[in-house]
Amino acid sequence: MNIATKTALTGCLLALAACAQPAPPAAPPVVDPYAAVGGGAVFQGDLNGGTLGSQATAQYFQGTVGDTVLFPVDQTTLTSDARAVLARQAAWLSQNGNFTAIIQGHAEETGTREYNLALGARRASAVQEYLVAQGVDPGRIRTLSFGKERPAETCSDEACYAKNRRAVTVVNDSGVGA
């Protein structure tokens, strides 16, 4: 290495050393005056606020437990698939006593408005009766019929009709805003 290169490197090193900042002083320790009281604070609860944590939400109920049961044409009889969903709903409602439920009865677009409102009401009642028979407090459940007024699918074929013959259980945390 020639002298010019050594001088340039030495200058760069001195410039870098001048830019270096001293280490920051160590932060003083944090003293918790309550740490010695009662052996310290130990949280043993649920960070999500419910008996089932993240499972105690309306979103969990809708997506995992299942909020919809389907019915055969012009029927209010619960199928075995519907009873399986309703058994899960009853178990969830029993474990989450702060939630109330509104059961919405629906029908397909065929038939008169009056017939479909009555059919939707009977479907909602069938679901309510099943949940009550499974031990859910009847005071936590209401029913509502939309008949054919709020279809899940809008078209005129059997695939759509089948999706519209349903009862939907909508849960609400009655503790919210209370």
Rank of each mutant, 00 (worst) to 15 (best):
A87M: 00
E109Y: 07
L119I: 12
G97N: 08
G135K: 01
G120L: 14
R140Q: 11
A82I: 11
L93G: 06
R142C: 01
D81S: 15
E129M: 10
A91I: 08
G139W: 15
L131I: 05
S80I: 06
E114A: 05
L70M: 12
E109C: 05
H106N: 12
R122Q: 15
A101W: 07
Q104S: 08
D137M: 02
G135P: 04
A82M: 11
E114M: 01
R123N: 07
V136N: 08
L131N: 05
Q104R: 13
F71P: 08
E129A: 14
T112H: 00
T100A: 10
T112V: 04
A90M: 05
R142E: 10
T143Y: 14
A124S: 14
V127G: 09
A82W: 13
G120E: 12
E108D: 13
N116Q: 10
T112M: 01
L93Y: 11
I103G: 01
F146C: 00
V136A: 10
V65N: 02
N98D: 07
G147F: 02
A118N: 10
A91N: 09
G66D: 00
G135M: 03
A121R: 05
A90F: 03
E114T: 04
T79W: 14
A124W: 15
A84N: 15
D67V: 01
G135I: 06
D81Q: 14
R142W: 12
Q134S: 10
R140N: 11
T79V: 14
G111N: 02
Q95A: 12
Q104E: 13
N96S: 07
G139T: 12
S80P: 03
V65R: 02
E114D: 04
V85Y: 03
Q95C: 06
I141G: 02
R140Y: 11
D137V: 04
N116F: 02
Q89D: 06
R113M: 00
Q95E: 13
D74N: 15
Y130P: 15
